[in-house]
Design a protein around this nucleic acid. Sequence first.
DNA 1: GCCAACGTTGGC
DNA 2: GCCAACGTTGGC
Length: 142
Amino acid sequence: MQYWLFKSEPSTWSWDDQVARGAKGEEWDGVRNYQARNFMRDMKKGDRGFFYHSQKDKAIVGTVEVIAEAHPDSSTDDDRWECVDIKARLPFKTEVTLDQIKADERLSSMVLVKNSRLSVQPVTAEEWQILCGLGGVPDEAS
DNA sequence: GCCAACGTTGGC
DNA sequence: GCCAACGTTGGC
C-alpha cells in the first residue's frame, strides 16, 4: 500500500464536502498538472492519503482512501487528464498545520515543504505514521 | 492582495 | 527544440 497527499482549496472542495459524499466518494477531478496526474495513475485501490487544506487553513485535516483507480476526468473532454476517486476515512482529532510540519525535522523533506505547488503528492510510510500520530488518528495500515 | 515559483504555451 | 510570455498556485 502506498500513501499520498491530496491538496484542496477548501472554498472549492473541502473536507466537509468530501465527508458529505460518504462511502460513494468523489472524483478527484480538475487536476491539470502532469506530475500530479502521473501520481494518480500510480495509485491503487485501497491506498491511503491525507486531505490537506491549502490557502487559509494550511493544514492536514483527515485521511482518505482511494476507491477507484485512474480513469478519464469527467470534468473535461481532453483525454490527457485522468483522476482517481477517493472517500473520506478519519477526521484528524487535531489538524496538523504546515507550520508544524515545517518545524518537525522528521517531516522536512516532505514534498509539501519542498514543492508547495504540487497538488497530488506521495507520502512515505514513515511520514504517514508520524502524521497520523500528530493528528490523533490510528495508523490503520491494515 | 501581493508576489515568487513553477508549469505550460506558442512563436520563432 | 528553445525560450519568452503568460497563467496559476499557494504561502506570506
